[in-house]
Computed example of a mutant assay.
Amino acid sequence: MNLSKNGVSQNHYQTLEVSDKATQQEIKQAYRRLAKVFHPDSQNQNADHNKIIALNAAYEILSNPQSRRLYDLELDSGQTLNSVINRQERTTHANQQYQRYRQAGKKEELQYHQWLTEVYRPINRLISLIINPLETEIDYLAADPFDQELMDNFCEYLENCRNYWQKASNIFSSQPNPAKLAGVAANMYYCLTQIGDGIRELEWFTLNYDDHYLHTGQEIFRIAQGLRWQAQEAIKSLI
């Protein structure tokens, strides 16, 4: 719970000024509208740093269907949600998933060239479509982040990125990697994990215009690019 200006406690739905039956799209639209009003950089007389913090906390819970269900249950019992899964937990989950992929690979190893053709190369092309345009897209948006058309174009780029990322993730999990390419597969898997986190950070920026999320997203993409290069060098050493 958080407090309104008059000291009365508000739940996350009240903070975002939506019904507890609101759709995910309505929640997103409400958050984006309020973030524009209260963001300290908006030069709006209603700018309020504490309100932005409350909006962020509310959206973090309600934008995730799983955490929203838990929150709804706790509202019914008069309790508040204690925590949200953080990036460290997601990374741990990613490690566990990757170990399962490796074990599956031991049972039924694919041929070297088949994996390169059907898994590595398609994923590498999709990663290029995500990472390569980033700097240009940010340069376009930098002209005026509060311009709706520029922001819509950047959001369209991020939506395409998420589609490419999901397709690449599906390709990666479709086949176990050959033991000979375990190192390459590890780099590509962690590259995709970083890209997923980077997209999420950039999406946060489009909702609240906080440059922290923009810079964090760029840095995560840089790390992902490094992992991709390591995979490419590893393949060269095997050819």
Rank of each mutant, 00 (worst) to 15 (best):
Y120L: 08
E201A: 11
Q88L: 11
Q29E: 15
H215P: 07
D144S: 15
S9W: 07
S63N: 09
D147V: 04
D152Q: 14
A186G: 06
R32T: 01
D152L: 10
I199S: 00
Q88R: 10
D210I: 05
D197P: 03
D20V: 04
E26H: 09
L110M: 12
R222M: 09
N64E: 10
D48L: 03
E159N: 13
S128G: 12
S42Q: 09
L126A: 05
Y164N: 05
V119Y: 00
I123H: 02
E17H: 09
Q218W: 02
N153R: 15
Q79R: 14
Y120S: 03
S174Y: 08
D197C: 04
Q111R: 10
I27K: 00
P145C: 05
N170P: 08
Q24A: 15
L227Y: 08
F146S: 12
L192R: 02
E156S: 14
E109Q: 06
P145D: 04
A30Y: 02
Y59P: 06
L207F: 06
Y120I: 00
N46M: 09
R162A: 10
C155I: 00
A54D: 13
L202K: 00
A22C: 11
G105F: 01
Y112S: 03
F172D: 01
Q96G: 06
N44F: 05
E219F: 12
T193K: 14
F205C: 08
A179P: 07
Q66C: 07
H39Q: 10
Q29G: 06
L75T: 11
F146H: 12
R125V: 03
G105A: 02
R125I: 03
L16R: 00
